[in-house]
């Protein structure tokens, strides 16, 4: 085993996505703590320009895995290419961004190598020379500390927003780019990617809204939605929903806030009856002021809220709407 850390970065439309920079920042942070060199790895076809962007960061080298079959992502091709490249180098740690793509291939890659993946990591610390990682459990209601046992490489995917990309260290000189052509047996790539589609044509752009009133499961029935609509109207805000609300068809999909919907950062965000699963939080935690109303005082939404009311929303909403109407008239 070489003493090193590899960060595998994802790209889309010729750019490294933000969360991948965060994964690299996490790798650099652990590298600094353990005094281990960090290498970056990208996969694709003809990635010269992209690898150059990564080389500006503080890494010992950028490994660019190149094959025609890597031009479009498939879990099979990615697992084949990465299995070869990671096994040869046998690093101590492998960092990945916790994206939909990584969620699809990384568990398979780690299992193929006889290793475990710690998914959705939110942080780490070092205790008596041992690295202790944290992640959430029970939809964010609890946290857990975990550590790896046995031989590396240890695979870790990092949660959005846990390792700010702003902390990414730039290198003094561009790092060398190693282009590695990989041969991938065609018969082992079983998935064929077809077309990409964007379903809901957006008519509302929640990212521009100044005030958003978002509603979750706590509303219980579609018939209760007018309570929330009245509050939104009183505030001159947009109404939005968590995933279960949009899945149920109570609000159109285009009004969904979260990892599978829109990312918003209004001046004022109301979370009404939303427990605050991480998939929702990543879509709204950049809001300036967050108000949460929930009957469960332990709901994770209160971790990001500036103001909280622990109560039955059916009691609070009418009173709140009335107070807001008064405030706006005065």
């Amino acid at each position: 085993m070489t003493q090193s850390i590899i960060a595998i970065l994802e790209h889309q439309d010729g750019k490294i996505a933000r969360l991948s920079w965060e994964a690299l920042a996490a790798a650099q942070k652990l590298g600094a703590a353990l005094n281990l060199p960090v290498e970056a790895m990208v996969l694709g076809s003809g990635l010269g320009h992209l690898a150059g962007q990564v080389a500006a960061c503080k890494v010992t080298q950028v490994i660019s895995l190149d094959a025609p079959a890597l031009e479009s992502y498939t879990p099979d091709a990615y697992c084949l290419a990465l299995h070869g490249a990671v096994a040869t180098r046998s690093p101590s740690y492998v960092f990945l961004p916790h994206t939909y793509q990584v969620r699809e291939f990384a568990p398979k890659l780690a299992a193929r190598m006889g290793r475990a993946l710690l998914s959705d990591c939110t942080g780490f610390r070092i205790e008596s020379g041992e690295v202790i990682f944290s992640r959430q459990l029970y939809q964010g209601k609890l946290s857990a500390d975990l550590s790896f046992e046995g031989d590396g490489p240890y695979f870790i995917s990092v949660q959005a927003g846990s390792f700010p990309a702003a902390q990414l260290e730039r290198g003094e000189n561009p790092a060398p780019v190693i282009e590695e052509r990989v041969e991938l047996p065609k018969d082992q790539i079983r998935t064929i990617p077809l077309e990409r589609v964007q379903e809901a044509k957006r008519t509302v752009d929640l990212s521009q809204a100044e005030v958003i009133v978002a509603v979750g499961r706590g509303i219980k029935e579609a018939e209760n939605l007018p309570l929330v609509e009245k509050l939104a109207a009183a505030l001159g805000g947009q109404i939005a929903g968590s995933r279960p609300i949009c899945d149920s068809g109570w609000l159109p999909m285009e009004r969904q806030v979260g990892s599978s919907g829109q990312t918003v950062s209004p001046k004022l965000y109301f979370a009404i009856g939303i427990s605050g699963a991480i998939q929702h939080l990543v879509g709204m935690k950049g809001s300036r002021t967050i108000v949460a109303i929930n009957k469960d005082p332990h709901a994770p939404i209160f971790e990001v809220a500036d103001y909280g009311i622990v109560a039955n929303l059916f009691d609070v909403l009418p009173a709140l709407t009335e107070e807001i109407v008064k405030a706006r008239q005065s």
Binding site: G140, K141, D145, L146, F148, Y154, H298, F302, E303, A311
Partner: peptide
């Protein structure tokens, strides 16, 4: 069996939420 759970705990709050009480 390469991952060990060491501890489960209630998350440490990152933000100072002001809770507003009283009647609705």
């Amino acid at each position: 069996n390469a991952l060990r759970l060491r501890k489960i705990y209630v998350p440490v709050k990152s933000k100072n939420t002001e809770f507003l009480d009283g009647t609705p």
